[in-house]
């Protein structure tokens, strides 16, 4: 029986410069931050990052890992604007593909279904068709209506964070929203899922309803046990967002050498130290 347990470093060893990497979660919610931190520590570069974006996109931009961002938004939820993503856009250090939230879903869906596009109304009439001049429209063969042909967004790799998983790669989501994690997995060649806790397969169905086991091992290639692996984003019901450290992250963008200071304190440390720090911080809020 396959045991898919790996470390963050093993996951990053599978990544290559120039890859298209999809990141699960939504805004500052249940992001696979321990794997993102490991990417930040690596010498990977020129990544295309596809995300309902939060600090994953921001930190990858801050560290100069991003060639292109594909997004419907990038936000920290309780703090609407992501400072490092803003800086990257305003200094034009990244390329961008800006999408309606629904179009991003359809792009992933098209890749998942191995078709080159899916039609939609979304985007018609908006700036989306102007800032993405490569997007075409398609005329329905049934009623003649012109619709936007959202191209497939195929991922080399998807990175997800779940509440529980087993060693075979079945991932369980105990929060109220799965976001689009399952779709990211379906759209990717390879999927790595970190989780708060690896449990025995027979314990998954007793931890939550069977429909919470949202991502099947059919679509996963590695499982990382990563306590506080989503921190400082939220990972309910295991923990809420750490607003204190999120505020510190945002403040760092305004300070001289702010990113260097933030990364020395929170990134360039062993993950075990990070976990202790996250546990202590969450205990005080």
């Amino acid at each position: 029986m396959i045991d898919k347990r790996v470390t963050e470093a093993d996951v990053v060893a599978e990544l290559r410069d120039g890859m298209t990497i999809g990141v699960g979660g939504w805004g500052s919610r249940r992001k696979p931050m321990s794997i993102i931190r490991e990417i930040l520590r690596s010498d990977l570069k020129d990544l295309t990052v596809v995300s309902y974006g939060g600090p994953d996109v921001g930190m990858l931009c801050a560290a100069g890992k991003v060639r292109k961002a594909i997004y419907g938004f990038v936000s920290l939820d309780s703090i609407p604007l992501e400072p490092y993503f803003r800086a990257a856009r305003q200094n034009k250090t990244i390329e961008a593909m800006e999408l309606d939230e629904g179009m991003l879903q359809l792009g992933l869906r098209a890749a998942a279904w191995r078709v080159s596009f899916l039609p939609c109304r979304a985007g018609m009439g908006s700036a989306i068709t102007e800032v993405n001049p490569e997007f075409a429209t398609v005329t329905s063969p049934y009623d003649g209506q012109e619709l936007l042909a959202m191209p497939a967004i195929a991922l080399d790799v998807a990175l997800l964070h779940s509440n529980r998983a087993d060693a075979r790669g079945n991932a369980q989501y105990l929060g109220i929203d799965w976001y689009f994690d399952d779709l990211f997995a379906l759209a990717a060649e390879k999927t790595f899922v970190s989780c708060e806790q690896v449990v025995a397969t027979e314990d998954l169905a007793s931890t939550g309803p069977v429909e919470s086991i949202r991502v099947s091992r059919l679509f996963t290639d590695g499982v990382v046990e990563a306590p506080f692996g989503a921190h400082f984003t939220h990972c309910v019901p295991d923990y809420y967002r750490d607003e204190t450290i999120q505020r510190e992250y945002v403040a760092s963008a305004k300070a001289d050498d702010g990113w260097a200071t933030f990364r020395a304190r929170y990134i360039d440390i062993p993950e075990s130290d990070y976990q202790a720090l996250a546990r202590a911080s969450l205990a005080t809020t």
């Binding site: 856009r89 309606d100 179009m103 908006s126």
Partner: peptide
């Protein structure tokens, strides 16, 4: 740079 278009293109049509 602000939020991005979010759901506005799809919502409005």
């Amino acid at each position: 740079q602000l939020l991005g278009v979010r759901g506005a293109p799809g919502n409005t049509v």
